[in-house]
Design a binder for these strands. Sequence first.
DNA 1: GCCCTGGGCGCC
DNA 2: AAAGGGCGCCCAGGGC
Length: 548
Amino acid sequence: MDRVLLRRDGAAVVATVCAEDGTPGAATVLPAGELPGWVAAREAAGAVRWVWDDTTRWYPALLDAGVRVERCTDLRLSAAVLRRSPYAGPTPAPDPGWAALEPVTAGDPALFDLADPADSLDPLAEHRRQQAAVAASPHRGRLGLLLAAESSGALAAAEMTWAGLPWRADEHGRLLTGLLGDRPPPGLRPPVLERLAGEVRAALRAPDLNPDSPVALLRALQTAGLPVEDTRSWTLERYEHPVVPPLLEYKRLARLLAANGWAWLDAWVRDGRFRPVFLPGGVVTGRWASSGGGALSVPVQVRPAAVADDGWRLVVADVAQLEPRVLAGMSRDAALADAARAADLYAGMVAAGVVATRAEAKLGVLGALYGGTRGESGRMMPRLARRYPRAIGLVEDAARTGERGAVVHTLLGRGSPVPGGAWAQEAADLGEAPEPAGRDTDRARRAWGRFTRNFVVQGTGAEWALCWVADLRNRLWRLGPGEPLHRRPHLVFFLHDEVVVHTPAYLAEEVGEQVRQAAATAGRLLFGDFPLDFPLDVAAVRSWADAG
DNA sequence: GCCCTGGGCGCC
DNA sequence: AAAGGGCGCCCAGGGC
């Protein structure tokens, strides 16, 4: 049964509707404070799907009240998927307010604002429209799975922020002091950086140089005789000059200080938890984005500070080479799936005699996924195309489709954006490959082809990962029944193809098993009985840094 | 003072 | 001949 939640005049209204066609049934009006108890009671009775405008507007308060829900439909996220999906059946245009709706975060003053734009939308009508779009889809199963997975992801994201990743500020502080010296007063460099800046200035004979200024640094490097056009680390590495070692060290430590230094600790770690905001569907391909704290790029350098509570463990799991495996599945390329039978797909390619070394295999596969054709990566392509014609054919088709200005889609039907450049307009007008165009136009066209090439694989990879997380979330809930979410094994972090679960130590092994079973389930959901392995590296550790 | 862009670099 | 996907975030520096 579907229950649609809406907010009217400060009260919560719960409308019961038929799950098949959205026909409305009875409605209940509740003072806002009574909602959590009411939801908890229905949830315990089972078989309910909560339908709401936006998970970020409802779920955090339910979690605060100790209420966890099993299933939901997030109308905002679903509308975004349907808007671009070639699999969506025809429906009247949605209220444009759905496309404009922004997720909210805890500190957001708009959260309980009477002027919240969400309150002028009609969730009942939008729910009916979305049901109709799926019912009329030529791929109901796939599209329905995508919407369900997207909504489950929204629940998982809210729960991860709520629970937080265990983070030891003392450990992090020790690490910073060890590398940078004592914390300086605001506006000053820590001692180690100050010393390195001095060495850089001396080596370049530039006593006033600010090494944080790329423009000034470039000029100083050139004056000192280094023929560089930029100041990137991998450019500098190529030169033997006394400035290079201290400058590279300076850049490494300055980056740590700026991105994950004491200021980061102050801003993002409270009560032993790092609580990043995850944004499901935040990337066009369907990957999650994040907001605040740089959650999607927590450097390996500071992961020693992510430490399980006493008596608990972190179960860290990641998939080896997710994207080439997904490509094998979506193209049903049996030869590539064979290579993927090995725990290391690249080793499997070497064993099959496709390439001579693992390094070649990796270069070739990444080139196929990203559109790299330069140098060694490009030289691998003909061999890969011969041995894996279906897989390579799929990404090549996606590239050509994008170059024509047309739309591609993932396995479950997430559509790519329509290109906006002038070249795309030409292509659309001509309906064909356009006249020979200028160099810039050509470059833009090919860049879009690389984007659509990668879109189909990255996006389907994101769908696999979403199914994995969604299934795992429910499996974890069944371990340790009767406890609140944060006293059971629960997800605390997700990063494209990696999850971290915080669990009582005695359940760590069982959690690892559930992580593997969830991966197998995700594979079956997307690829049916096509034989394809998704091997995981799983580690139960005290600190995140001890995994992998 | 705010806002935007580009360089650079962390993650996948 | 040239041709490498997706993000977020920090800083400097220029425009207002």
